[in-house]
Design a protein around this nucleic acid. Structure first.
Lengths: 206, 206
DNA sequence: CCACGTGCTAGACAATGTCAAGATAGAATC
DNA sequence: GATTCTATCTTGACATTGTCTAGCACGTGG
C-alpha cells in the first residue's frame, strides 16, 4: 500500500521481494541462463545498480531466489510426507518423491535456479542450510523406512541416495522434457506413478 | 603439422577442434556458465569473432561441444553393455547405468554442457539426434530386460524412464557433490554399486 | 533544523555477443 | 600462370551486461 504511489518513489518499500519476483518472471520467459541484474532492476522499476545493495552480486541474487525455492520445496515435501501418514513407510517415501518431482514440474523456475544455474550452493552458507533442511524431510522418510521395514542388509545411505537420485533424475528429465524418444506420449504424472511404483519392489526384501 | 607454424597463421587448420578443446578447458576451470566465445577464441589464438564462422553463435558452440559429449557417452554406454554380455539382462542394464554415472563423474565438462548449460537440445537438430542415439543404448538394454525377463505387468516405458532417472539423478548428485549431509563419506563408486544393486530387487517380480 | 545512515541513483569501465565490412590464402577455372 | 572464387579469418563497431565509486533523497533522532 505504502509503496505503490507511482513510479518515482525513492524508497521502493520492498525491493528484495520485487526483484526476486522479477527473477522468477525472467527465468520463466528466457531461462535461468539469461537472468540479468539490470533486467530485474528494470522490471522492479529501479536503477540498474539497486540490486547490488540487497544482494552482493548476480550470484547472490540467484542464491536468494534459490533459497526461497528450497523453503517452498521443504514445505511441500513435509506436507506430502504428513498427508501420507496412514500408509506404510514406503508409501510415505514415494509420496515425498512424488512431491519432489511435482515441485520441479510446477515450479520450474525455482528448480532451474536451484539446480542448474551453476551457482555454487556450498559457498552460500544460508542457501546451503536451506537445501539441507529440505533434504532432511527426505532423509526422515528414509529413516522411517529403515527402522520400520527392518532392512538389515541394506545400507541406509544407499537407500537415501537411491530415492533422491530417482526423484532428482525424474525431475530433471521432466523439466527438460527429454523423455526417451517415443516415450513422451505419457504424462509426467504417469511416469511419476510408474517410477515410484517400481520402488514398491522393495517389498521383495525384508 | 601444417598449422603449427607460429601464431599468426591466417588459416588455423583445425579451428573447430581447437575451439571445442578450449571450451572444455574453460568449463573445467570456471564452469559452464562462464564460457565465452571470446575467451575460447583467445585460447585458440584467433580473433574474437572467428568462432562465429564455425558455430552460429554461443549456443551453437556449446551445442557442438555437447554433440561431441553425446558421441563419447554413446560409445562408453555401448562398451559397457557389450562387456557385460555374460550376465543377465539386469546386469547389463546396471552396467549401462554405471557407465552413465561414470561418464558424468569423469567427463564432467561434457556432462555439464550437455545437461546443465541451458541449451535447448531439441532445437538443435544434429545435437538432438546424437542425444537420442546415446539414449538408444539404454533403451536397447531395457528392451533386453523386458523380453528376457518376461515382465508382463510392467510398462516398458516406465522401466526405461526408471533406469534413466536413476542414472541421471545419481550422476547429477555426484557432479554437484551434493550428497545428503553426512553421507559424503562414501565414494561415488560405493553409491553406484549401492544404487544399482538396489535395482536388483527387480528379481522379486517376474 | 540538522546531522546521519539506509536505500537508492548516476556515471564510468572492462568484458561480452553479435553484426557488417574487409582482408588473405588456397583451389578452381581458363 | 593470371584470374576469379570461396572458405577462412580479421577489424571495427554497437548495445548489453556486471561491478565499482561517488553522490543524492528521505525518514529518524538529536
Amino acid at each position: 500500500m505504502t509503496a505503490s504511489r507511482d513510479s518515482a518513489v525513492y524508497h521502493h518499500g520492498d525491493l528484495p521481494n520485487a526483484l526476486l519476483a522479477a527473477v522468477g518472471e525472467i527465468v520463466e520467459e528466457k531461462g535461468a541462463a539469461n537472468v540479468s541484474l539490470r533486467e530485474a532492476a528494470r522490471r522492479a522499476g529501479v536503477s540498474h545498480s539497486a540490486p547490488a545493495h540487497h544482494f552482493k552480486d548476480k550470484e547472490g541474487m540467484l542464491a536468494a531466489f534459490a533459497e526461497r525455492g528450497f523453503e517452498i520445496l521443504r514445505g511441500e515435501l513435509a506436507t506430502a510426507r504428513e498427508s501420507a501418514t496412514g500408509g506404510s513407510a514406503l508409501d510415505r517415501l514415494a509420496a515425498v518423491g512424488t512431491a519432489y518431482v511435482r515441485f520441479a514440474v510446477h515450479r520450474t523456475p525455482y528448480f532451474d535456479v536451484m539446480f542448474r544455474s551453476g551457482i555454487d550452493t556450498p559457498s552460500h552458507e544460508h542457501l546451503h542450510a536451506r537445501a539441507d533442511s529440505a533434504l532432511a524431510v527426505l532423509m526422515g522418510a528414509v529413516g522411517d523406512l529403515i527402522s520400520e521395514g527392518g532392512y538389515t542388509e541394506v545400507d541406509p545411505r544407499h537407500v537415501a541416495v537411491y530415492f533422491w537420485s530417482l526423484a532428482h533424475g525424474l525431475a530433471s528429465l521432466a523439466v527438460d522434457r527429454s523423455m526417451p524418444p517415443g516415450l513422451d506420449e505419457l504424462t509426467i504424472e504417469d511416469y511419476i506413478a510408474g517410477v515410484f511404483g517400481m520402488s514398491q519392489l522393495f517389498n521383495g526384501t525384508g
